[in-house]
């Protein structure tokens, strides 16, 4: 660095405005500021997920066993295919976005319109896929029971531990169910959450009368598989069951550790919200391109800026995909 005092002319140059730090325009730099801070927010989420996972390293749910649905393939075990498809959709919409930016550099309005439209469609497909993923997650498929200590017991066949049995095939019909308490009944307008389709008593007696069903615990052995109890151990453990759990909510879920569902909702939800707002911003820019705002302005830098945001959303998904579904 020079130690001489700069001349008046240089100072005027520096302080007179019109200089672009890093040769990037104001808007682009501000978008980078936002992206860096948003990246830290997401890493905070993912690291918190890592914390809970390391804390429960021997009992965390296995993603392949949770996310194994594919549209139109009912009951087929298809781990990861659907998220992989979502990843490709998002990467592809990222590519159409870069192509739109590139067309903007060449001032080709028609091509910008075309590629922006493809990007918006890709983003909409992704958000829709995520909604479908949430629906499956919330609804659940087999159901489980939970103990007082928060352990989840799932039910599998003894001779084929890979095959799970749903509560509807397991539970015995016992007449005399209690009905859901609603705020219109009783005093003090209190209500309770939706009752599971089967009472604990029905599930437990169904389990006892089915000699070839055993319990699959949360615990993971050294090989990374869930530990499956013998029939005698299962009969002993079933007496500790306290709740019937179907699907997932923020309190308990049938897949295992309670925090797993919480992090699923928060991380994919936060990311999905980013995609949704990205689609909305893309639509605004799309219409601006259509009515020729940027043509008159003389440059398409707005497309580039919204493109930065869109790629960032894709970048975050790459990490969510790895840490939620692969690792």
């Amino acid at each position: 660095m020079s130690t001489t005092i700069s001349t008046n002319i240089e100072e005027e140059d520096l302080w007179g405005g019109g200089k672009q730090p890093f040769k990037a325009s104001y808007g682009k730099l501000m978008m980078w500021f936002f992206i860096v801070s948003d990246a830290l927010t997401f890493s905070g989420f993912l690291v918190a997920y890592g914390f809970s996972r390391f804390k429960n390293i021997d009992s965390w749910p296995i993603a392949d066993e949770v996310f194994n649905h594919f549209p139109f393939l009912h009951g087929v075990d298809a781990p990861m295919y659907y998220v992989a498809l979502m990843t490709f959709v998002l990467i592809f919409s990222s590519v159409t976005m870069v192509l739109a930016v590139d067309a903007g550099h060449h001032m080709q309005k028609e091509r910008v319109v075309f590629y922006m439209a493809l990007t918006i469609i890709g983003g909409a497909i992704f958000v829709g896929s995520q909604a479908w993923e949430w629906k499956n997650f919330i609804k659940g498929e087999y159901g489980a029971v939970e103990t007082n200590g928060g352990q989840i017991y799932q039910f599998v066949y003894e001779d084929n531990p890979k095959k799970r049995i749903g509560l509807e095939n397991l539970a015995l019909e016992i007449p005399g169910d209690r009905v859901q308490h609603e705020s219109k009944n009783g005093i003090w307008f209190r209500d309770e959450s939706t009752l599971p389709s089967f009472t604990l008593n029905e599930v437990v007696s169904g389990f006892k009368s089915n000699p070839n069903i055993v319990i699959k615990t949360e615990k993971i052995d050294e090989k990374g598989h869930k530990i499956i109890l013998s029939r005698e151990e299962s009969l002993e453990k079933i007496s500790q069951a306290k709740y019937v759990v179907e699907g997932a909510n923020l309190v308990r879920n049938e897949y295992g550790n309670r925090l797993f569902a919480d992090f699923f909702f928060f991380i994919t939800g936060f990311h999905g919200f980013h995609v949704l707002s990205g689609v909305v911003i893309n639509i605004i820019i799309f219409f601006n391109v259509l009515i020729g705002t940027y043509e008159r302005r003389g440059h398409y830098e707005m497309v580039e800026k919204v493109g930065l945001y869109w790629h960032f959303v894709d970048l975050v998904w790459v990490f969510v995909f790895t840490f939620f579904y692969l690792v």
Binding site: A39, S43, V47, A48, G50, F51, R53, F54, K55
Partner: peptide, 16 residues
């Protein structure tokens, strides 16, 4: 991020 990951994962492991 490297700092955050290091310190929080070590802590999670300790709590385990």
């Amino acid at each position: 991020i490297a700092y955050l990951v290091f310190i929080i994962l070590v802590e999670g492991n300790y709590i385990y």
